[in-house]
Structures are given as structure tokens and as C-alpha cells.
Design a protein around this nucleic acid. Sequence first.
DNA 1: TGCAATTCTGCATCGAGTGCAGCTATCGTC
DNA 2: GACGATAGCTGCACTCGATGCAGAATTGCA
Lengths: 198, 198
Amino acid sequence: MSLRDRKRARTRQALVEAAAALFERDGYDETTIADIAAEAEIGTRTFFSYFASKEEVLFPESDARVRAAVEAIADRQPGEGPTEVLLRALHKIGDDSDDLGSRLAALRLRFIRDIPAVRGRALQIQTQAQGEIARHLAAAFPDQLDEVGAAALTGAFVGAVTAALQVLLGDMDRLDDPAAVQAAVRKATDVALRPWAG
Amino acid sequence: MSLRDRKRARTRQALVEAAAALFERDGYDETTIADIAAEAEIGTRTFFSYFASKEEVLFPESDARVRAAVEAIADRQPGEGPTEVLLRALHKIGDDSDDLGSRLAALRLRFIRDIPAVRGRALQIQTQAQGEIARHLAAAFPDQLDEVGAAALTGAFVGAVTAALQVLLGDMDRLDDPAAVQAAVRKATDVALRPWAG
DNA sequence: TGCAATTCTGCATCGAGTGCAGCTATCGTC
DNA sequence: GACGATAGCTGCACTCGATGCAGAATTGCA
């Protein structure tokens, strides 16, 4: 890893932390990109060479969950069918929401709930992730699933979990309590996926 | 209905049609709100007293589908369970996509696919609709469903249909062919809801 | 050390969206 | 039909997100 790359990674991290701090202190709308860039000690213009928009800085690891799911699909046992594999993949995602304790994760949840632009971006990321998972699932079970069937199955699972989670988190006041959020995630996956578990 | 209201409705309609015409001719990004307002012969500032954002003008009847679904839930037969009612509601929505033949509907589909901001807004509208349907469903079956369960069930159905439809429309080049789109919608609902139909 | 390739940065610009203040048109009443 | 009251329309100024561009600064490599 060259000096350039290391420096770039450090600057990126600094931007995420600066944004988190300012968002936390002043709120999302009240924080401008110029503020964030200044806090991270870079030029305003340079922000956009790290993140394409203001929302992106809230989702710096947006493909981690897809990787986890793809991994779970690849690790399938000989006897497993598509449903079991997908269930395992989603449970895995739910379990190792590694960064859930971070400041950024709490902010993200709050802003997804409160700021339309952030909610829209989150939904887009989720839709894209869902599509990629579906394609991997279809590729893993070519004789049991076509593209459309895999998308429908994945959409059903993800849609159920997301909707349940939304209700559970919707009337929670302390989104910054990792244990409570983790419990909600677990309950959502349990409730949503129960129909298929048996 | 007063003169004021009629005039307002007419202006609103004029804005939708002006936007459709300009979007069709020049594309979404290339059309400014000032253009749309000028075409509809109102001041630029006035646009925002009819639509809160540029995307909104593409979704002028965003609550029609929710109304249809709520109606279907209200019309339930004595013997029906939540699943059957919800299936009927979603099929009804899929069937009477009344405006599907319109210029605006074709544009909307294309822009949902191509323009991130529009896609984000569409996903938000869908999420909200889904939530309202779930609440009505929970209210209709208070002893069989709680809020979370109703959300999960609705999310599973809507998620499945949406994901299937996305694949089917994704590699379609003529989104302005109402028959083809209608066929895709029908196929998506069939494929996605088949697991529950039996 | 010096050259080439990236990266950073300020500047100018555009468009979306908001607050405000004044004007115009409609409504209900006399 | 005239009248204030109310709601809607409009231009203006402004903020902020986002992009293109060109020059300065930094890093990689010979």
C-alpha cells in the first residue's frame, strides 16, 4: 500500500469522523459540506473526490453486508436449498452488524428516520445490495432459481425484515443504545423469517 | 368545488403535463424547474406551492394505490385471513394501474431506473405506502396480527413483487409500451406471490 | 535530482429549494 | 355591486449542494 493510498485512507477516515462529530453536535441540515471539509482540514472541493454527496459520508462501508451475504452463499453445505442459504445469510448479516456500536451507526439510524434525503439513499443502497445478493443466489442454484425467482425470494426476505425493523425502531427513542438496537434487529429477523424457518 | 380550487387543480395538471412534455423532449436533468414553470405559465417560485420538489411532479397520484389497497382490505369476506386479503389487495393494485398507459407513467419508469434522485423518491413513497397498508391490515385482524407481524407480512409481499418487477423491467428497452409493462407487472405478481397462493 | 502522474484546491457557475414582502385574485358579507 | 378578509401568486435575495476547469502541490519512479 503506497503512501498515497495510506494518506488517502486516512483523509477519508478523518472526513467520516469530522462529519459524525459535526452531525452529532449541530444536526444534519445544519452541517454544511464546507464545515465538514474544514474540520477534516481539506478544501471544500476535495470532499467530492472522497464522497459523491453529503449522504454518502454516512455509509462509508456500504458493501460490507453484501460481502458477508455473498460469503454465506459461497459457504453453502451440500444439502442446503436456496431458502436455507438465504436465511443463513440474512441471519449472519443481522448478527455481525459490527459497527453497530459506533457513533456513526446511531446517527445513521436517526437520520434515516428523520431526513428524507438520507432515507432515500439508504433505500437505494439496500435495493442494490438486495439485487446483488439475488444474482449470487441465482448463480448458486442455477437449476432451482432463475433471475426473477431469486429476486422475488430475496426481496421477500429482505422486505420482511426491513419492514419489521422499521416498526421496531420507529418508536424507539434511544437509537444510540447498541444493545437495544441489536435486540430489535434480532427480533425483526426472528419475526419476519419465522414463516420460512419451519 | 370553488373557483379557486378548480383553478388550482387546473394549474397543477398543467404543471404535470408541462413537465412530462419537457422531460420527454429534453430529459430529466436537462429540464429545470424554471422551464417547467414557464411552460405552464406560472412563476418559478409558484412551482413549489404545488410540488415540494422536482421529483414530486412525477408522482402526482402517489396515494391512489394505497387507497385501492385499503379499500380491498375493507372489502374482506368473513372467511378470509390476512394473507388472502393482502394477496387480493396487491393483485388489485397490479390490475388497475390505471394511468399505466400515460406518457407520465413511461417517463416515471424510465427515470426510476436511470435517475438516482427519482429512484430514491420512488422507494420512499413505496415504503410509506407499505407502512400504511400494514397498519390497516393490522387493524383489520387485531387478534391474528400485531404491528410488527403485519409489517413483516406486507414487507415480504411488496418486497417480492417489487424485486421481481425490477428484474423484469430492468432489461426492457421499451418502457412506453403499456401492454408489455402490464404483462411484466402481472408476471411479477404471479411469480412473487406464487409461494403464498397455494 | 528531475520528470510524469495524481491529487488538491480555489474559482466560477448552475440549479434546487426557502424566507420574505408585496401584489393580485377570490370569497363571504353587507 | 362594493367591501374588507383571506388565500394564492410572484419576484428578489439568499443558502447550499454539486460540477467543470485550471493551476498549484504532492507523490511515484527513473
